[in-house]
Write a protein that binds this DNA or RNA. Structure first.
Length: 365
DNA sequence: AAATGATACAACCGCATGCCG
DNA sequence: TCGGCATGCGGTTGTATCATT
């Protein structure tokens, strides 16, 4: 038993609206308003249209102060920023862009903005492959594809974790606010938030083979113990030295590492780690189809995150963020122990520079 | 000039949600 | 509290227009 139709489809006109229909609808609403009942409205004014169709036409086209086309660079930035932050919640995004409708933004994203970004990503991937393999014909091989996903998952997870740590009431900590997720997305997000050492990370890095030198890569945040509530760590070279010294006693089960920097007590909270594989587990393989699932997810969800270079290159619009005070610096990959600048928060909830510092720690066991 | 493909955008569909009796 | 209904929302489809061959 299906859902009852909202109107008699045989007796309503469908397809593009004529100027006469537009005029009728606009004149009525200008005069009387919608009356709070879209279903009854078309009958009142003699339109052979479904109430939903009238509502959509009014909201997306006839309503005053509607802007069509001609998205500015600043609007592009806002859309990109919000999309990556909250996903395809077009109505929320539209609320930030006066005069724009959710439908308009959705169409703009799907037809132009996404392609613009994806196009750059594809091209940069091709360039990278070509530069490393002169024989490559532009088709990504499995290793480069995996590398792409690895970086993507890493940044996605770190972004989520950082957001949740920055703001306990953030979107990522409030499941009620979550958009409808692809089961795979949901699985990934839930695991990321539930587990301090997300098992997903084991898929995000190449599995060491038996006999390989074991390397632990951990991702963490440094927080000043004394001001944990406010979280205003100050870092200097001595901080990093202190951290390095603290690493000498680290074990694979540590979840956070206390160390001192001058007269400051600091904690390194490990938010994830990867690459720890006991010899007996060396043959363990990622779950079947994980790679393709991730690829699909990333391709549909965002334009994908590749290397730092790509990030900057592909998201050209993001480079402009700084002009609007929306810094977007991603985690650097090219260090063993290195402090990077703060993350970005698309909602501009937290902009305090240096509030959190992320560390990637790589060391041999 | 015609055929074909690509693109942009308006409109539709159906599920989720909130309101109200 | 529950069920019915209207509305909101996001994904998808249809179609007009433009570009390319």
């Amino acid at each position: 038993m299906g859902r009852a139709p909202c109107c008699d489809k045989n007796n309503v006109k469908r397809g593009p609206w004529s100027p006469e229909e537009d005029a009728k609808l606009k004149a009525y609403i200008d005069h009387f308003g919608t009356g709070g009942n879209w279903i009854a409205l078309p009958q009142k004014i003699g339109l052979k249209r479904c109430g939903k169709s009238c509502r959509l036409r009014w909201l997306n086209y006839l309503r005053p102060n509607i802007k069509h086309g001609g998205f500015s660079e600043e609007e592009d930035n806002i859309i990109c920023n919000l999309y990556i932050s909250i996903g395809s919640r077009w109505s929320v995004i539209a609320a930030q862009l006066p005069g724009r409708t959710d439908n308009d933004i959705k169409n703009y994203w799907n037809t132009r903005l996404k392609k613009k970004l994806l196009g750059r990503r594809k091209q940069s991937s091709i360039n990278r492959i070509s530069s490393t393999n002169p024989d490559a014909d532009g088709v990504e091989d499995s290793s480069s594809s995996q590398a792409l996903s690895n970086a993507a998952l890493e940044r996605l997870q770190l972004h989520m974790q950082l957001q949740s740590l920055q703001n306990p009431n953030s979107f990522y900590n409030n499941h009620v606010l979550w958009p409808k997720l692809h089961p795979f997305q949901e699985k990934m997000v839930l695991q990321s938030l539930k587990e301090s050492f997300s098992p997903l990370m084991q898929y995000a890095f190449p599995s060491p083979q038996q006999g390989d030198e074991q390397k632990v890569v951990m991702y963490g945040q440094l927080v000043d113990s004394d001001t944990r509530q406010q979280g205003h760590p100050k870092f200097s070279n001595s901080s990093v030295v202190g951290l390095e010294n603290s690493l000498n006693g680290i074990t694979s089960s540590d979840s956070y590492i206390p160390f001192t920097s001058g007269d400051h007590a600091m904690d390194l909270t490990i938010v994830s780690r990867a690459g720890v594989v006991e010899p007996a587990d060396a043959a363990a393989q990622p779950v079947p189809n994980f790679q393709s699932e991730l690829e699909n997810f990333l391709n549909s969800k965002t334009s994908g995150f590749t290397s730092q270079e790509d990030k900057i290159g592909e998201f050209g619009c993001f480079k402009e963020m700084n002009r609007y005070g929306e810094g977007m610096n991603w985690w650097s990959n090219d260090f063993e122990i290195k402090a990077s600048s703060n993350s970005w928060d698309s909602a501009s909830v937290l902009k305090s520079e240096g509030m959190f510092h992320d560390y990637e720690l790589g060391y041999n066991m």
